[in-house]
Design a protein around this nucleic acid. Structure first.
Lengths: 327, 327
DNA sequence: TTGTATGCGTTATCAA
DNA sequence: TTGATAACGCATACAA
């Protein structure tokens, strides 16, 4: 800025002003400064700016996995919303381990982000302490709780599991199994599904199987194991999955064995990915509005950064059961 | 650090040393300092550190889309590799517009990243100038060129398109169409496919259709349009797609119309996503090793940051035609 | 409308 | 092994 200023015949401060609020500088000097900037290729140092102003214009985001469409979809909307307001995104994958997450949170806090997005509501004690100590606005997404660190945007996983069970019972399925990925939210949906299904008159106990990452191959294997145990020996059986990908794996295995869906075995997914409506049979699943979630999370943080307390600390974006052919 | 130092009975500088290189501090003072850090919950300010040391430990990554598995998969490996070395990732989606990319590059440069990852090799002039001017190590991925900005890790899209055409001709398909997403690399594969297919004795000209984002619905629609035009009026027809997702859409549309694959119409995809091997029929496609690509990009940047020039500026990771049932 | 002085929290240099 | 001092490049308060 010193150099640019010299070229334009003004001081460093005036250059700073021209960049941050052009209206504070006379039109003539402004254009001289802009010429100097163009001539030198000057790019302001945001690190120094952040240090001086105590505003980093950085938002950190921690998600379990960016290759999983449910997180990357939400993240895309979240990022776009914030980028439009001049923020940039510091991203990390945390997997599903709480201690890893704590370490990542600490690394992110060293960059002094203006806000932070966390996935899920269960964190290490140390994470909570660091965040509270740092005083950064935090939004926990993809789940809800009565005791958020700060803000919270998501939906109830046990409720989603129960809704799946109620649907299955209402459609008359007598026997059910839940195939699942290993993440904690999927497991809570599974437990809620199993509990409600038996409670609502279905045969219990409902087997819950699997803890690998969600993949087609995983869905096939878990389904194959169930069938080998005689799970579909008689009609009225339903396989509920913790994700559409696992459900698609189930459909593939059932097709390979020539078992009719939903006639012999019904299938339910979770997530309503694009392929759900295109599969054959089309997949009955649970829709979560990822765009709405990402947008709500961004907006909540923005108002919080702006100083005004958001109307609600906890926003439940809900979910919707999407009835199609597979169950 | 001042405060921590007072608690431990040393100066601020010693605290800094304890953090950056513990071996430079006596064991006793080190443990006193660590106690003080634990007691205060002190988290060092990386912004100030970066400003003083001129090393931000930040790597910026620009990809067209994070919801597309081909980019997010590569990114996951790239990030993991760098995070293991203490770097953090500043991420932006740039879409497919060069001016948008230029603006994003400028915003990222203001954070003084130690290196930058760019997708593709075609950029605005301004982008190239800024990058060269800033002197940051740059790796362009997912494509190759003789004139990289700095480093380059990818494969040849025209070659991939020609390999698909050669395979199709070798299998005896006489007529072909290419359905594609709108991105520039997909279009270059399509053009190369069309050119080679005709040149190798296939019927020409080969229609190239579509420029929407890759989706199942898009694949179905493009396929439907081709079929409505009588594309599959006789045997020996093949539909090549710019991605596995589009190819899956094609398979769905063909199944819906009762057209046998590959008997009546053959289908080829691109990307070898997980579902490719699980579809029915299994999908013939082109595999690109996303992990290897992300890892090579990270390693190239790391050696470049380390000061030693990497052995090669351009790394061709190649691709492989995966022969399955659909073609 | 512009400029001067000061501080942000580190690291690097030099000295003790 | 430790400390004093000077950058790093900008924004803020205050003055002119």
């Amino acid at each position: 800025m010193e150099t640019v200023g010299r070229m334009a015949g003004v001081s460093q401060v005036t250059v700073s002003r021209a960049l941050s609020d052009p209206s504070k500088v006379s039109p003539e000097t402004l254009s001289r400064i802009q010429e100097a900037i163009a001539a030198t290729g000057f790019v302001p140092n945001a690190l120094a700016g952040a240090l001086a102003s105590k505003k980093s214009m950085l938002i950190s985001a921690l998600v379990p996995s960016i290759t999983n469409i449910v997180y990357s979809g939400m993240l895309a909307t979240f990022s776009a919303e914030l980028r439009a307001r001049g923020y940039q995104i510091l991203l990390s994958e945390t997997g599903f381990d709480r201690e890893d997450e704590a370490a990542t949170v600490e690394a992110h806090l060293s960059r002094r982000p203006d806000a932070m997005l966390l996935t899920g509501v269960h964190h290490a004690d140390r994470t909570r302490r660091m965040l509270l100590g740092a005083g950064v606005p935090v939004v926990e997404v993809w789940d809800i709780t009565d005791t958020p660190i700060d803000l919270c945007v998501g939906f109830s996983h046990p409720e989603a599991g129960r809704a799946m069970a109620d649907y299955a019972r209402a459609r008359g399925y007598r026997r059910a199994a839940f195939i699942t990925a290993g993440d904690e939210r999927a497991l809570r949906r599974g437990a809620a599904f199993a509990g409600r299904f038996a409670q609502a008159g279905g045969e219990g106990p409902v087997p819950i199987r699997g803890d690998a990452p969600a993949s087609l191959a995983g869905g096939r294997a878990l389904t194959a194991a169930l069938l080998d145990e005689g799970f579909a020996a008689s009609d009225g059986a339903l396989i509920a999955a913790s994700s559409d990908v696992l459900a698609q794996g189930a459909l593939i295995e059932l097709a390979a064995r020539g078992l009719a869906v939903p006639g012999r075995v019904a299938v339910m997914g979770f997530g309503d990915q694009e392929m759900a409506a295109a599969l054959s049979p089309t997949l009955t699943t649970v829709r979560v509005n990822r765009d709405a979630l990402g947008r709500a999370a961004a907006q909540a943080l923005l108002t919080r950064i702006g100083g005004t307390a958001p109307e609600r600390q906890v926003i439940d974006v809900g979910f919707a059961l999407v009835e199609r052919q597979s169950a």
